[in-house]
Design a protein around this nucleic acid. Structure first.
Lengths: 114, 114
DNA sequence: CTCATCGGTAAGTGGTAGCTTACGGTTCGT
DNA sequence: ACGAACCGTAAGCTACCACTTACCGATGAG
């Protein structure tokens, strides 16, 4: 899917953040994750389903267990999304700073008046 | 605060994502945000409190209204946090790919044997 | 074939996040 | 000083999310 906002929403949960953190260091099975995390194995499984649905993790069956890993490309999508926010906010921030020291009345060029 | 994980958690809510999206384009008052968003003004106010608590937005009083804007530096913190995830996952991903096409039996160097 | 390991899913529960309405405080205009 | 505009907070409610236990299918080892 590579939907950035959906990924961001999925990353909102602290447990899922921990899962991504652990998986970013290398592939892990569900049980291994559950050993590290303070929740049960089914809980981990459900979180992994969420992460997989938005495309943040990949999984493959190896023997009797299923290895999960982070999809770097998906993470890059979220990164770019935040980049866009950051650049825009930076531009807006600097613009405001300029008009502040120059002209207290800010009615910039072509801004949309609600 | 500049706590990256707390910021990520705060960004988990779609409404807050919309708020950041709108504010990244320039400072806005609470009422202006409420006009654009599909929620009431108090709801926006509560979301702004969350975003402010984690340091993602700044506010200043101007006349009778309060202008909010994104703190670019805070957003940069989150960006770097995701960068770390991304780099780690990329390294792990490439390492796995290499041992795959080279040696089907993967018992790499000093990996943790459960 | 049998048993053990591993993991996904169903069912059910508690907590809380997000929303609304109502109210009070603050600032500006006249 | 009075009224209007703007905003934060309290109170309350609903819905959903994260978690647990229980169950079942699938894969490997003996």
């Amino acid at each position: 899917m590579t939907n950035a906002t959906a990924m961001l929403t999925a990353l909102g949960d602290p447990t899922r953040q921990s899962i991504i953190d652990a998986l970013s260091r290398g592939p892990l099975a569900v049980g291994q994750l559950a050993d590290v995390l303070p929740v049960s194995r089914p809980a981990v499984s459900q979180h992994l389903k969420v992460l997989k649905d938005v495309g943040l993790v990949l999984d493959r069956q190896v023997g009797t267990r299923r290895l999960y890993q982070v999809d770097p490309e998906a993470l890059a999508v979220v990164r770019r999304h935040l980049d866009a926010f950051w650049e825009r906010s930076l531009a807006a921030f600097e613009q405001r700073t300029r008009s502040e020291e120059d002209d207290p009345d800010d009615s910039g060029s072509g801004d949309d008046p609600a």
